[in-house]
Design a protein around this nucleic acid. Structure first.
Length: 302
DNA sequence: AACCTGTCCAACCGCATAGTT
DNA sequence: GAACTATGCGGTTGGACAGGT
């Protein structure tokens, strides 16, 4: 049987998202939480397929996404993790919660791949005797990969366990503490986008504010002018803060987005021994473990 | 100024897989 | 267990932009 398309191709809009669409999507997710993507286009009236909505959210609108230049540390992480995991970008991204798999993938393809290749070529030319070393490294790769997988499984278990404690925050959301923590960690991307869009088209803010009046209660909505031109505003969030009230003293729903509401594991219901062990382990080992595990291999790149 | 080339990155496509009926 | 559906993932594309000639 053939797999049907994820959405009806007729009447489905493609291409870059407009700020209006972003706002509608964000307001919907703020109200209902992420997940149930199929319902998003019908509920919001967006002429986008569910897949496109999910992608837009996870890769761009989701709070907590860090944009811009990758730090040296992040580069090392990516190079190392790519070495360990291959092109499993989602797995790699799980170690860099502020970056999306798409971002990491793009960065790898445009920067790091060349960098690594160049480095390897240099190595081949200059240090043939290092071959035996790299051979032994590759021999140990399966072991390390296994280690990483164990770590990831452990983390997944940790996430699953911790989820119960966070469920009240996002009943509809998918079980992922990364998600919940990123929700809590930043709303800047969305805030910037909205702010910018407000500057661009004050009158069209009606759409956003009407459909989201429960969520957006900042009086400054739609009051600014000075439109800015270009597609950049549509794809580069410059400010949402004026519309979203993500402060901890707001309603329970909006408060879920705040950094202040980032789950404080130590203040939760008493942990079981297993949970405690997991949290401690993940917290202490986390990314450092991965980097340290064999960062020596990549550290000479920098 | 016009053209060419390379880079960047948002978004799309198709497949895999998990979940549901 | 088969059929169907929803979601996630990785590969790829295409448009915008920057820099060079």
């Amino acid at each position: 049987m053939g797999r049907p398309p994820c959405c009806d191709k007729i009447g489905v809009k493609k291409g870059p998202w407009t700020p209006e669409e972003d706002i509608i999507l964000v307001s919907y997710i703020q109200e209902h939480g992420p997940g149930n993507w199929r319902a998003v286009p019908t509920s919001t009236g967006l002429l986008r397929c569910s897949k496109s909505c999910r992608l837009r959210w996870t890769n761009y609108l989701r709070p907590g996404i860090k944009r811009g230049n990758f730090t040296e540390h992040e580069e090392k992480m990516i190079i190392h993790l790519q070495d360990l995991l291959g092109n499993r970008w989602a797995a790699i991204a799980s170690y860099l919660p502020e970056r999306t798999d798409n971002d990491i993938k793009n960065y790898w393809n445009t920067h790091l791949k060349k960098k690594v290749r160049k480095h390897q070529e240099g190595d081949d030319a200059n240090n043939q005797d290092r071959h035996s070393v790299s051979e032994s490294i590759s021999k140990g790769q399966w072991e390390r990969r296994l280690q990483t997988d164990i770590h990831m499984a452990k983390q997944a278990l940790c996430e699953a366990l911790s989820l119960d404690k966070f469920n009240n925050n996002f009943p509809d959301s998918k079980p992922s503490p990364i998600q919940t923590s990123t929700y809590a960690s930043s709303t800047e991307n969305i805030a910037r986008l909205l702010e910018n869009w407000m500057k661009k088209s004050p009158e069209s803010s009606q759409i956003g504010s009407e459909s989201t009046q429960n969520s957006f209660n900042n009086p400054s909505v739609g009051t600014s002018s000075s439109p800015s031109e270009g597609t950049q505003s549509a794809t580069t969030p410059e400010g949402f803060n004026s519309l979203f009230s993500f402060n901890s003293d707001e309603s329970e729903e909006t408060a879920n987005f705040t950094p202040e509401n980032k789950p404080d594991l130590n203040n939760q219901i008493p942990l079981t021994l297993l949970e405690k062990w997991l949290f401690d382990d993940v917290a202490t080992q986390g990314e450092e473990e991965i980097v340290d595990m064999s960062l020596g291999e990549t550290s000479d790149l920098f």
